[in-house]
Computed example of a mutant assay.
Amino acid sequence: MPLRNWIMLIVLGAIWGGSFLFAKVAVAEIPPFVLVFLRVSSACAALFIVLWHQKLLHRLELSLAIPFLIMGLLNNAIPFSLLFLGQTEIGAGLASILNATTPVFTVIVAGLLAKQEALSANKIAGVLLGVAGVAIMLSSSLSGLASDPLWAQLSCLGAAVAYACAATYAKRFKAVQPQVAATGQLLGSSLIMLPIAIYTGTTWSFSETSMTAWINVAALGIVATALAYLIYFQLLGEAGATNASLVTLIVPASALLFGSLILGENLSALQLAGFGVLLVGLVVLDGRVLRRKGARAI
């Protein structure tokens, strides 16, 4: 992979890792469902400007309205809501690690349930290692060695399941330009979250929210969503889906670094051990390292 693509990959991993930090700071002052609406609507507005500049607004066809709503629900509304709810109680680093299980759940949903992909030996092994890693992480709270509430961790795992369902559903958008698909799903999720945000945000005060929180809201919407989507789709087009998927390994590492340096977060020994097992599972799931070793042996 060229150096340009490696730089894009690292930048994207840092941005998406930072999104957990932005959310942790913002959700301390803004109700989770309101924060979700602010994130998706601001990102949608930014991508509308991009589509207008690229003369692609006409590609937002009415025939795609229902698919965009479903994609917006699965890829934005549900996972963002679950992540922000979870982050009211757990740190950015732990939330990002639990969210990194998305490829594991994608294999389960796409391979076992939807029958879209063949289940190879490395995928089965990767899923088993991933599940083991999650079990080790959750055992830290179950055994009382960590104070992170179990429900909050399960909420973040639920977000990973939603992302897996979205990845499976996204197959029907192959003929749609990536930036159009991204804008359409964000428009769909904005429409879904608007009434929910109004209903749940009655006690929240716009004027009493600090500038720090608003800066993190802008970072979530403009940087971690709109800009990140554009970088991701550019990387996808230049380096391919397999190379782009490496961002999964970078995101939790960057979130842990930011959480430790900026928020002073720390994980328990069991949580770190579970993270290690999960990382091994993701590498095995990816399969490239194993293929290279096999090729060298021959």
Rank of each mutant, 00 (worst) to 15 (best):
E61A: 13
S63C: 12
L64P: 00
A65T: 15
I66H: 11
F68I: 11
F68E: 07
L69Y: 10
M71T: 07
G72Y: 11
L73I: 12
N76P: 00
F80P: 07
S81T: 14
L82R: 05
L85Q: 08
Q87A: 10
T88W: 04
E89P: 00
I90H: 00
G91Q: 13
L94A: 15
L94N: 06
L94R: 02
L94K: 09
I97T: 03
N99T: 12
P103D: 07
V104I: 14
V104N: 08
V104E: 07
F105Q: 06
T106N: 05
V107G: 02
I108K: 09
I108L: 15
I108R: 09
I108S: 04
V109H: 13
V109R: 12
Q116G: 13
E117P: 02
E117T: 07
A118C: 01
L119S: 08
S120Y: 12
S120E: 14
A121P: 01
N122S: 10
V127H: 05
L128A: 15
G130W: 08
A132Q: 07
G133P: 04
V134N: 08
V134A: 07
A135S: 11
I136G: 01
I136Y: 02
L138S: 00
L138M: 15
S139Y: 01
S147E: 15
S147F: 00
P149I: 00
L150R: 09
L150K: 04
L150S: 06
A152M: 05
Q153H: 04
L154G: 03
S155M: 14
G158M: 03
G158E: 09
A160V: 11
V161S: 10
V161C: 10
A162Y: 11
A162P: 02
Y163R: 04
A164F: 13
C165K: 05
A166W: 08
A166L: 08
A166Q: 03
A166I: 09
A167D: 06
A167W: 02
T168Y: 05
A170C: 02
F173D: 06
K174S: 15
A175G: 14
A175D: 13
A175W: 03
